[in-house]
Computed example of a mutant assay.
Amino acid sequence: MGNRTTWRWAVTLSALVLTTGCGGQAKPEASSSRPVPTAGTMTTASSPATSPTPAIDPDMPAAARAHTPAGAEAFARYFFAQFNASLQQAKPDLLGGLASDACKSCQAFIDTAVEYRTNGQHYSGEPFTVATVGAIDQQGNDETRVLVSGVQHPGAVVDASGKIVQQTKYQKGQFSVHLKWINGAWVAEELKVVK
Rank of each mutant, 00 (worst) to 15 (best):
G2Q: 11
G2L: 14
T6Y: 11
A10L: 05
L16N: 11
V17H: 12
L18F: 11
T19R: 15
P35E: 05
T38Y: 13
G40E: 08
T44Y: 02
S46G: 08
S46C: 02
S46I: 04
S51W: 14
P52W: 12
D57E: 01
A64L: 01
A66Q: 12
H67T: 02
T68W: 04
A72N: 04
Y78R: 00
Y78D: 00
F79G: 00
N84E: 04
A85C: 07
S86P: 01
L87H: 10
L87K: 07
Q89V: 13
P92T: 11
L95P: 00
G97H: 00
D101I: 07
C103F: 01
K104F: 08
D111L: 11
T112L: 04
T112M: 02
V114S: 08
Y116V: 10
N119H: 11
S124V: 06
T132I: 01
T132F: 03
G134M: 14
G140L: 01
T144H: 03
V148K: 09
S149M: 05
S149P: 02
V151L: 02
Q152A: 13
H153M: 11
H153L: 12
P154R: 08
A156N: 09
A160V: 07
G162R: 14
Q167V: 09
G173A: 08
Q174E: 04
F175L: 04
K180Q: 14
N183D: 07
A185Q: 10
E190I: 14
L191R: 13
V194N: 05
